[in-house]
Design a protein around this nucleic acid. Sequence first.
DNA 1: ATTTTATGTATCTAATTAGTTACATAATTG
DNA 2: CAATTATGTAACTAATTAGATACATAAAAT
Lengths: 106, 106
Amino acid sequence: MSTTNNADRIFHAIADPTRRAILDRLRAGPVNAGTLADGFSQSRPAISKHVRVLRESQLVVETRIGRERFYEVNPIPLQTVAGWLEGYRAFWQVSLDRLKRNLEDK
Amino acid sequence: MSTTNNADRIFHAIADPTRRAILDRLRAGPVNAGTLADGFSQSRPAISKHVRVLRESQLVVETRIGRERFYEVNPIPLQTVAGWLEGYRAFWQVSLDRLKRNLEDK
DNA sequence: ATTTTATGTATCTAATTAGTTACATAATTG
DNA sequence: CAATTATGTAACTAATTAGATACATAAAAT
């Protein structure tokens, strides 16, 4: 995924349920890699790889303290998603009306 | 992707840039399959498959008229995404403060 | 009735991905 | 300094995916 733009990277990052779960866990506060992995049934390396994807999309920030690495959420990239959704919010009512009309026509 | 829940299906559906582009196109109003595909550089079957994924996630609704099939956006499932994001909105300010503090500590 | 048109499905392939176990590296501790 | 601990990376595998081309089906037009 080398020629991938920012938005793609972000949407891809949050597409995986484990990665969303990691973000949700980190929302409670920063934890080190080991503690984070303990909360999941997958192997530590598997979680490590998910965290890497999250870091590459900037959704997670790493802080190294000694040999430990703490991870925390950076919500900024989620604004990209929020912005995309926004384009549908305006559409919301109008489209529901149309959908309803279409369904009534049957 | 049989044992996939609703949210997973939705996040997965919007993860693909072509599928997001399809949704964005459909936001302008319903079109039939052929017209839709004409707007893309991929083959018609490729687009057809993307539309299927979008339909399975309920983001797109199909209406058959004669031999044509019209597609339109159903924004409702996007509420799932909006809801998930919402959990981060509250977190927004607090986490940015913390991030800022952490960065200042270096 | 035959041909054309609109569109989905089958099949196959190349690329990507999520997971695993084994290994490497760098701090800490005794 | 040797042993332990925290953690990422390498290598490999199985599953999933996006895309292409060829084919099937059904409606519409001649």
